[in-house]
């Protein structure tokens, strides 16, 4: 057991203790500049409840999280079915298709900012086929969509590779037996593929949820939270309150809420998805 002690101590000091301190700060008025801290109970939380900006940040974050569960799972499985073949072409495509996942979110955000600009490549392409390109980044609603797209790009890459691995692990004689029994393509998917890729659904969903709820880098690079604060996520709100405005108490209350939401959604999804895996 002694061998685990250094790691446990490191984790306790730099992860567990900070969570405790965050909870403590959230119940106080904290001013680092004057080195003052005073107990205020739940008033930071009450302020958040009343703050339209924070409610909007929460809404943006949850919206992107919901989209990030659906889009990568759907597109990832679709791409995987397309790419699940043995020849060298498909192996190569699978390897390079994963590349977006290893890129820095900052680089991804900047690239999308440039691609989605009013005179960017996407709008040029749209205009070429006769569709007037919208203002992706400077309109409040589409700015949120843009951020979601940048994150989804990376998550779809991740999901595709996981689904391909899951598909490749399904024994082909299952499909052959089903075909002999006269099962249609849809039935084969419904009864063989979908249940057997269940573990990939679980991982994709969890990774997507966690990435979306902590979203920061993509937003900073792509919209900076703007226009105004229309695409601000909770992650951005925490850093702005904590560092730019020096309101660590308020920022910590946001952090505690984000942590509770993250824990609740991941635990519930894990329960639901694991049950599906077991029912096979």
């Amino acid at each position: 057991m002694a061998m685990g002690a250094p790691t446990a101590a490191l984790f306790a000091a730099l992860v567990v203790a900070p969570i405790g301190i965050t909870v403590h700060y959230s119940l106080n008025d904290v001013n680092f500049l004057r080195d003052e801290i005073s107990w205020v109970g739940f008033s930071n939380y009450a302020k958040l409840w009343e703050s339209g900006d924070f409610r909007h940040a929460l809404y943006v974050t949850l919206l992107i999280a919901a989209a990030s569960v659906v889009v990568p799972n759907a597109l990832g499985l679709l791409f995987a079915v397309l790419l699940d073949a043995g020849s060298r072409l498909y192996t190569t495509l699978r390897i390079i298709l994963f590349a977006p996942f290893v890129l820095s979110p900052l680089v991804v955000g900047l690239t999308f900012r440039w691609t989605l600009a009013n005179d960017g490549s996407l709008n040029n392409a749209l205009e070429a086929i006769g569709i007037p390109g919208p203002e992706w980044i400077s309109s409040p609603n589409l700015a949120v969509v843009s951020v979601g797209l940048a994150l989804a790009w990376q998550l779809v890459a991740f999901a595709t590779v996981l689904y391909v691995a899951a598909l490749r692990a399904i024994p082909t004689d299952l499909y052959e037996a089903a075909s002999i029994d006269g099962a249609s393509g849809y039935l084969r998917f419904r009864l063989i593929t979908w249940p057997l890729v269940a573990p990939a659904v679980t991982i994709t969903t969890l990774i997507s949820l966690i990435s979306a709820l902590k979203l920061y880098d993509h937003v900073v690079a792509l919209t900076g939270g703007g226009p105004g604060r229309s695409s601000e996520t909770v992650g951005l709100a925490i850093i702005r309150a904590g560092f730019t405005q020096n309101r660590a108490g308020l920022a910590s209350a946001m952090a505690v809420l984000l942590l509770v939401i993250t824990a609740a959604t991941t635990v519930i999804s894990l329960r639901v998805l694991r049950r599906r895996e077991v029912e096979l």
Binding site: A13, L14, P18, I19, Y216, V256, L259
Partner: peptide, 16 residues
Amino acid sequence: GLILPTPVILIPVFRV
């Protein structure tokens, strides 16, 4: 620790 978002703990981590 797997699900912990970094923005949640960075302020106290700096203090520690």
